[in-house]
């Protein structure tokens, strides 16, 4: 059991999400930075389908009832177990009754805490992910919550460290143009890539909202709602782009100018930070 003492700004349970239900209006959800969540699972010897905790700006404080192997990935945070410092991106032991504290990340936004066996809250539609848009899945972490640990495990992990490149100060996101590039003025892609955009404070798991040069529209009529994908750069009438993340709506009514290749990097940008776009190679 994991007993939550302090939840931090936003903590949720996440796994690979709900696949194959989008035609029923159920979005995929799941870890926003999927490779980071997958790495956390690998470091403790879990299958990729095991659920982990996704922390936004760290700030978690928990007590472990039984001893367990754990690992933190994604945005690197200071981690202590009963006051002793342990590293991120490497597995560590938490003994029975010990308290684990995750501080705030120096860079990046979302960190992933995996425990060997996985977080075993009750699945909803075959996934343990919290979808903040639709309200499916377990509620966000709150003090007093007790999370069971499951038996979703493989052999003991072979790696004891996964060196990570430092997260860039101004990440560059590659945009593959389309599907609705022709709804924008001819220079819209150039405008998008010319200067960095600033990440807005109302960004969340649904999308990264950006402020900067407005993207000029050519077609002014209303777009009938159509399905959107993770990484889609949707442009509402304000002209300020939104990059969709894991909890994006299944369909959207504003044109998508392009789709970002590096969704995990987009999931790590924090409010106030700058991001740059470039046109992706086809």
């Amino acid at each position: 059991m994991i007993e939550v003492l302090t939840a931090g700004p936003l903590g949720t349970v996440q796994d690979l999400g709900r696949e194959g239900l989008a035609h029923l209006g159920v979005g995929r959800s799941g870890a926003a930075d999927r490779p980071a969540a997958a790495l956390a699972n690998r470091l403790v010897g879990n299958p990729g389908s095991a659920a982990v905790l996704e922390l936004t700006l760290g700030g978690l404080h928990v007590r472990l009832e039984r001893g367990v192997l754990a690992a933190l990935t994604g945005a690197p945070c200071p981690v202590t177990v009963s006051g002793r410092a342990v590293g991120s991106h490497a597995p560590f032991w938490v003994h029975a009754g010990e308290q684990l504290r995750v501080g705030a990340p120096v860079r990046g936004l979302r960190s992933y805490l995996a425990v060997r066996g996985g977080v075993a809250v009750e699945p909803v539609l075959r996934s343990r992910s919290t979808d903040l848009l639709s309200g499916l899945g377990p509620p966000p972490l709150a003090p007093g919550m007790v999370l069971p640990i499951g038996e979703d495990r493989l052999d003991w992990p072979a790696a004891d460290l996964a060196p990570q490149a430092e997260l860039p100060e101004v990440p560059t996101l590659s945009v593959l143009p389309g599907p609705r590039l022709d709804w924008f003025a001819a220079d819209a892609l150039r405008v998008l890539c010319a200067r960095p955009y600033v990440v807005s404070g109302d960004s969340n798991r649904i999308g990264v909202r950006l402020t900067g040069a407005a993207l000029p529209r050519l077609v002014e009529r209303q777009l009938p709602s159509e399905a959107v994908v993770s990484g889609a750069v949707q442009v509402p009438p304000s002209g300020q782009p939104i990059v969709f993340l894991a909890d994006h709506p299944v369909t959207g009514g504003y044109p998508v100018i392009g789709v970002v290749d590096e969704v995990p990097a987009a999931a790590q940008v924090r409010p106030g930070q700058q991001v740059r776009f470039r046109v992706a190679k086809p």
């Binding site: 696949e19 989008a22 035609h23 009938p224 399905a227 959107v228």
Partner: peptide, 11 residues
């Protein structure tokens, strides 16, 4: 992998 219909489009 998956089909998502809308009023004038199919993803």
């Amino acid at each position: 992998v998956q089909l998502i219909p809308a009023s004038r489009t199919l993803l």
